[in-house]
Write a protein that binds this DNA or RNA. Structure first.
Lengths: 242, 242
DNA sequence: TAGTGGTCTAGACCACAAA
DNA sequence: TTGTGGTCTAGACCACTAC
């Protein structure tokens, strides 16, 4: 006897995949609308309700953004609301909530063991590395070291970074067509080494938050690995558990 | 001219509220099934689809749990899967993933300014305070100090805590009928004071994670405030950003 | 006024679990 | 076999936005 089909995939999941593939292929640009539910229903040969359920899930994953009366939009890191989706840092007592990125260095290197594991690239493959400061209201709060697969970020230089107004991810989106969809962070407490302590204006050996992040684009492909050292003298890392 | 009705609440939201109210009133016990969608549809006088959408949202909030073919269950902290919903601590290199709670002290006090603010109770109102250790595989990793509104936790003693096998929240659920629905955590890095350093087996002034949590039950009512100090020598705090 | 997403319904059928 | 949740459809109507 043949086994009963072990793989059952609901129609709306298949539609979801098709929409994702279209997004991945750049068929609709970030910030722009996708076709209406009715149009997509015709295109895919299913009912509007099925398209709706597919879009519902993509909206829940922050990949699409629905706006009643206007349409469904491809979400974009240009949207200022998108910033704090990935930066969970909040001032302790009021203070400036808008951070400013200050690029310090940008250079090329080759992937070591750790980078190769986190970015799922071969050992020795080219990397682009960024070091930068995050300031809240003139005050430095975070030092980041950011590892990127070199092939995907051709032409990324310190000048490009310095000329950019806005978040890193919005630069990645505009300049390199890479959209970060989700990320995973590992948080630990570490003692500040001297160089970092100086940059953040804290005493050597002060406790800092070490935040290691791997960020993924479509199809769960990792495209960024970063390590941030956060001074939590005036800020905290906020996490909502649901 | 009268303004056009500024308050529009979809039917399914109203149904959702009704279900929440029933849960709050204890009409269905944690771990047990609620009536079928069809039954609820009849009870509330709406279509099954409307009940479904209400339940969908409650399931997304981890308040209900759907199981195809079996029914819809009231989620419970007895479910072992529920543990890591609130404890985001993961071993660095394998190691025991199941923590053991070791209650150290349990005493009464009166709410100071901070407790009063976090628990939304009056200054001077009675509190129950717990101090406990969390061990992974014999090794102490977390020291917690937990502040609870005294009225809601009558009869909570060190003996009760020591006799309980399982998580704190499952005790709260069984013994005091209080279910934690969501929580908000503020994470910072701090230096270990001597007493804490000794308990965790680390050097004085070692960097630790300070995790302050306010946990809420139905209707966003805060019922627990705790501060944990985490040793991140062998563990890290994991956070998924979506 | 037209077009979008949002809600609600009724009904058919499928997948899964338990008896 | 029965009962549960899960999927899919078709159609009506509502709320919001823009023209």
């Amino acid at each position: 006897m043949a086994p009963p089909t072990p793989t059952f995939s609901p129609l709306y999941q298949q539609i979801k995949s098709l929409i994702l593939r279209a997004l991945e292929a750049g068929e609709w640009a970030p910030g722009q609308t996708i076709p209406s539910e009715q149009e997509l229903a015709v295109r895919f040969g299913v009912s509007q309700g099925t398209v709706r359920k597919a879009i519902d899930e993509l909206a829940a994953e922050n990949i699409l953004l629905r706006r009643q009366g206007k349409g469904t939009f491809v979400s974009s890191h240009h949207d200022p609301r998108a910033l704090f989706r990935f930066l969970r840092l909040v001032p302790l007592n009021g203070g400036a909530a808008q951070p400013v990125s200050v690029p310090l260095e940008c250079w090329r290197a080759r992937a070591g063991q750790e980078a190769s594991k986190n970015l799922q690239v071969a050992m020795g493959s080219p990397l682009t590395i960024i070091r930068r400061l995050l300031k809240f209201d003139v005050k430095p709060v975070v030092v980041d070291e950011i590892y990127l697969p070199g092939e995907m970020f051709q032409g990324l230089t310190l000048e490009v970074l310095q000329d950019w107004e806005g978040s890193l991810y919005s630069l990645f989106e505009s300049r390199f067509g890479l959209r970060m969809i989700r990320a995973s962070e590992r948080v630990r407490a570490v003692a500040a080494e001297r160089a970092v302590a100086e940059m953040l204006g804290v005493a050597e050996h002060s406790p800092l938050l070490s935040v290691e992040r791997v960020a993924y684009t479509y199809a769960d492909k990792p495209v960024e690995w970063r390590r941030g050292l956060y001074s939590t003298a005036d800020h905290f890392y906020l996490n909502e558990l649901n």
